[in-house]
């Protein structure tokens, strides 16, 4: 609760700051750039604006760090099959495939 209240006042200040200054984006716009940023596809000018927002905005900076970390974890886990695939070549499956193949 305390945190949300503080965010209310700070949000207002930041809202004014990010809206009123040239070369600034707000957090919603930052969010839209995240994927291109991580893909290295942001043009130089937008990259500058994106990185400036990241320096000034604690929320977006920490959000992005957690986003990257969770992506890394999910890649590591998704990359390994849940049940390990049997090491041995599955002879019965090979036979079924070769039997089913049509000329």
């Amino acid at each position: 609760m305390k945190y949300l209240h503080r965010s209310g006042v700070r949000g207002w200040i930041k809202g004014v700051l990010f809206r009123g200054m040239p070369g600034m984006i707000n957090c919603v716009e930052f969010e839209e750039f995240v994927l291109s940023y991580l893909d290295g596809e942001l043009p130089a000018r937008q990259l500058k604006v994106f990185e400036r927002h990241m320096r000034l905005c604690r929320e977006c900076r920490e959000y992005l760090a957690a986003y990257r970390l969770s992506s890394e974890l999910s890649c590591a886990v998704l990359g390994t099959p849940q049940e390990s695939v049997p090491e041995d070549v599955p002879e019965d499956l090979i036979k079924a495939i070769l039997d089913a193949r049509q000329y």
């Binding site: 949000g11 969010e31 929320e59 920490e62």
Partner: peptide, 10 residues
């Protein structure tokens, strides 16, 4: 995000 388009992030 809040109504000022600021991120809500603990």
């Amino acid at each position: 995000f809040d109504r000022h388009n600021c991120r809500i992030e603990a």
